[in-house]
Design a protein around this nucleic acid. Structure first.
Lengths: 185, 185
DNA sequence: ATAGCCATGTAACCAGTTACATGATTGA
DNA sequence: TCAATCATGTAACTGGTTACATGGCTAT
């Protein structure tokens, strides 16, 4: 249900091929929704059958022909309906958090190694996001509603990463030095 | 894969019926992993076939007999292996974030209504978590590694909720007053 | 040469949701 | 009397992952 709408959001922003969409799911909206190319091609097919998107064939020598998709009027309407519908409770399933929660059942070595790796990864991602934020703040002139929403979403992502980093640091301190935070979060 | 291990974690903590587990998935570990009773019963069946859990039938008059499950030695071993394995990248899929990201395509009314509802819900949940934190901090004496991990996980949950609340507040300010945050997150 | 990008897809499988089914007990 | 709690499950469906398949172009 939501993959469908995430695709419509992307195509509303800018038409493109399935391949393009797969790329775009790695940055921007990819913070909040991801999809593999297999899923995307499938979904585009159904969306096409339902008339919510349409494509133009661009023939190419030596490569598969490109299908350049764009959203249709019914597609826009469906998307708007979904955006205005009531949100249903989300389930967050994080294997990493389960592993941390139960880390007392494991040997420290391998767990700490994973934590280190994750700290690195998330620090790098945070730097990226911070750079994006800086470039937003450097922009002069009034911001469109759309840009503003992208920006507050980015802020959420930044704080989310910081939260993760803090968790990982606390877990590391706990496993290595036995230190437990003594003041409220 | 992870549902399986989440169940093993729960049973490691304390044996119980499928019904019990469904309850427990609402508090504590339920912050990070949720499952419906249908999933749980299915999974317990397969875990039983694989010898990772076993059950004792407790007959009851007038109600379905209870199957009291507990983890087995091979179950514990499998869980430990999983806890020590390398973490694979997680995909976070949040429909709510997609809706916010694309809210500029919708009428404000219904979106703001959902945001209000969500603010309420999350504030209530935050209060619960804060109460749990307070009761942890009030506890005297040394904490076991296990309790400490539960505690740092809880702290993560608290900060996560605060992050959500901040996002929702920023979106509301944006949609109602057109106010865009002007200082870094 | 070898890896990575471009560009599409199918098939088998695993995970999760929704709907259906039963039925006594307890408390408001 | 109505809703919630206890206690189990099946069946159909939808969503998502993994593996497989093709094949030229470009940069190192």
């Amino acid at each position: 249900m939501s993959l469908k709408n995430a695709i419509l959001v992307l195509l509303e922003g800018k038409p493109g091929t399935g391949y393009d969409l797969a790329q775009r799911f790695r940055g921007g909206i990819g913070q909040f929704w991801t999809a593999s190319h297999q899923q995307i091609y499938q979904e585009l097919k159904t969306l096409g059958q339902d008339g919510l998107v349409e494509f133009e064939l661009q023939e190419q020598a030596s490569r598969p022909d490109r299908k350049h998709y764009r959203i249709t009027a019914p597609g826009r309407a469906a998307l708007k309906d979904w955006l205005q519908a009531t949100w249903k409770p989300e389930r967050l399933n994080s294997a990493a958090l389960v592993r941390i929660y139960a880390a007392y059942l494991a040997d420290q070595g391998p767990v700490l190694a994973e934590i280190e790796r994750n700290l690195e990864e998330n620090r790098a991602k945070l730097d990226e996001y911070l750079a994006q934020e800086a470039s937003h703040l450097a922009r002069t002139g009034r911001t469109s509603r759309r840009q503003a929403l992208v920006y507050v979403s980015l802020r959420f992502g930044i704080r989310h990463l910081r939260n993760w980093l803090e968790l990982l640091a606390e877990v590391r301190a706990l496993l290595t030095e036995g230190r437990v935070p003594d003041r409220p979060a």
